[in-house]
Simulated scan of single mutants.
Amino acid sequence: MVSAVGGIGSGASGTGSVGADSELAQLHKKLSECVNCESATTLEGRTQIAEISTRITAIKDRQHRVELTTAPPEATPASPTAKATDGTLGTQLDVYA
């Protein structure tokens, strides 16, 4: 079984998480069909399997980059000069003088 792959996800689809997940599901199904097909051992079949695998990897990489850019930044450690943030600075009186 050898068929064209160009129609899946070409264009503006896949830009959102739902679109990308849908496209991934379609590509995984298509990949499964290609791998389990009689033509999987032919040059054309192996080429199609490689193309689908490459597209799956590209979509996963794109999703990962989006997750990294939309993730909240980690809490930055406090600077060494900001030690007295608990309200004790200036509350003690030196009576020895």
Rank of each mutant, 00 (worst) to 15 (best):
residue 17 S to W: 09
residue 37 C to F: 11
residue 41 T to A: 11
residue 5 V to W: 06
residue 9 G to S: 13
residue 28 H to N: 05
residue 19 G to A: 05
residue 15 T to K: 13
residue 16 G to A: 01
residue 20 A to T: 07
residue 21 D to P: 02
residue 43 L to D: 10
residue 4 A to R: 13
residue 19 G to F: 06
residue 10 S to Q: 13
residue 10 S to G: 13
residue 11 G to V: 13
residue 33 E to D: 15
residue 3 S to F: 10
residue 6 G to M: 08
residue 23 E to N: 15
residue 41 T to F: 09
residue 33 E to H: 09
residue 42 T to H: 09
residue 19 G to R: 00
residue 28 H to F: 00
residue 33 E to I: 01
residue 11 G to R: 04
residue 27 L to T: 12
residue 14 G to C: 09
residue 30 K to D: 09
residue 30 K to M: 07
residue 33 E to Y: 10
residue 36 N to V: 04
residue 32 S to E: 10
residue 25 A to D: 09
residue 9 G to W: 00
residue 28 H to W: 05
residue 26 Q to S: 07
residue 9 G to V: 12
residue 12 A to V: 01
residue 33 E to Q: 12
residue 26 Q to T: 04
residue 12 A to Q: 05
residue 36 N to E: 11
residue 31 L to Q: 13
residue 38 E to L: 01
residue 29 K to C: 07
residue 18 V to W: 02
residue 30 K to H: 05
residue 7 G to S: 13
residue 30 K to T: 09
residue 18 V to Q: 11
residue 39 S to E: 12
residue 2 V to G: 09
residue 13 S to Q: 11
residue 7 G to K: 14
residue 6 G to F: 11
residue 30 K to L: 12
residue 17 S to D: 00
residue 42 T to G: 03
residue 30 K to Q: 14
residue 5 V to C: 08
residue 22 S to H: 03
residue 13 S to A: 11
residue 38 E to A: 11
residue 4 A to I: 02
residue 25 A to E: 04
residue 11 G to Y: 05
residue 43 L to R: 15
residue 41 T to I: 00
residue 26 Q to F: 00
residue 33 E to P: 10
